[in-house]
Amino acid sequence: MDQNRISTEEFWNPEHVVEKFWNGLKDGVIYAKKCKECGAIEFPPHHACNECGYHDTEWTTLKGTGMLKSFVFTGLLNARLELEDMGLKYVCGEVQFDEGPEMNAVILGINKKKGREIMDKLPVKVRPVFFDMGRYTTLFFELDEDEK
């Protein structure tokens, strides 16, 4: 083979977007992308912008704080089995980051009583929980209440 010929790995050296995201959570950093045209935050990070359909985005980070806008309790049919196995109290809800993007999320530490208490106060503040799942760290949330 011609020694001067470009190697495949030099020819194509793409970013590992998903790997970077999960490694970031391990370090307590929430990576996202920002659209180079419309400025929308793409979360979780992907190559292109889903807000305006532009092809190019650049890296940014999120603080992880935001608002819980609605939530549901889970039952037999829709429980998060991995969390039930750990005996965790949680609800599933819609979180909007302070920077804009929204996602369905898991909010820890909310039992039925607490849930009923906050139901009429929505939206309420949440902050990130970098949760160790063993082989990876994921992003959950908890209520961001002033000292009690």
Partner: peptide, 9 residues
Amino acid sequence: YLGGGPGMN
């Protein structure tokens, strides 16, 4: 692995 699995579905 975030919140997009069962739960809100």
